[in-house]
């Protein structure tokens, strides 16, 4: 489904990624590990067409260098920063994101999803008052409502309590069943050791298994 072919990226003359390759098929979850500053977030942002790159090709469904809008529609990036407007409520943030993605999701379904992620008491409160864990839950609720093919999740487990991790695992299970694929960046060693998924390492500017 997604094929990253020899992607390279330099910042101010410093090579961050050097001919990085990766293939992600349907219903796959891959975990990407690497030291701080190794270029994991940069790599995810390049795939999500949020960041430019110097060399290489991105194939989506065997189409070389798809339109950015096609990639942004099918590849969903969930960053390690909140990515929501502080002054808007969870409902308003999600409605804005969904409407710009032209996803016609009824308000009732959004409210039900927010309840599922235990945010029902905060539906109309501004997101600015949320804790880190609540923001992570809100991100999952948003990702849960969207229609995407490949999800790029950058440190989604940060700030989550046990209940939150459980909810996250449920999401992963549902996404994989729905033939969606996930590339997950995490430093959470417990999560990595307890999972059976492919683990990749970003080391010396390249990805290895």
């Amino acid at each position: 489904m997604l094929h990253i072919d020899s992607i390279s990226k330099t910042f101010d003359g410093k090579v961050i990624l050097d001919n990085v390759n990766l293939k992600i098929g349907n219903s796959e979850l891959k975990i990407l590990k690497g030291k701080n500053g190794s270029g994991k977030t940069t790599f995810l942002k390049i795939i999500a067409s949020l960041m430019s790159y110097n060399n290489g090709k991105i194939f989506f469904n065997n189409i070389e260098n798809c339109k950015k809008t096609t990639l942004r529609k099918n590849i969903f990036y969930l960053g390690d920063v909140p990515g929501f407007y502080k002054f808007l409520s969870p409902l308003q943030n999600i409605e804005l994101g969904l409407s710009l993605r032209k996803s016609d999701v009824p308000k009732e379904k959004i409210i039900l999803t927010l309840k599922k992620f235990e945010l029902s008491n905060y539906i109309n409160k501004p997101v600015g008052i949320f804790s880190k864990g609540m923001l992570q839950r809100l991100k999952f609720a948003y990702a849960f409502l969207l229609d995407w093919k490949v999800g790029l999740l950058d440190e989604p487990l940060n700030g989550l309590d046990d209940e939150g991790v459980k909810l996250f695992n449920e999401c992963i299970k549902i996404w994989i069943e729905n033939k969606q694929s996930v590339l997950l960046v995490t430093h959470n060693t417990d999560y990595i050791t307890n999972s059976n998924y492919d683990i990749l390492y970003l080391k010396n500017k390249k990805i290895s298994s």
């Binding site: 949020l50 809008t69 942004r72 990515g83 407007y85 502080k86 804005l96 994101g97 710009l100």
Partner: peptide, 11 residues
């Protein structure tokens, strides 16, 4: 909050 990401990640 890097709020602009909410818009930039849409097509």
């Amino acid at each position: 909050f890097n709020a602009i990401d909410l818009i930039l990640t849409t097509p």
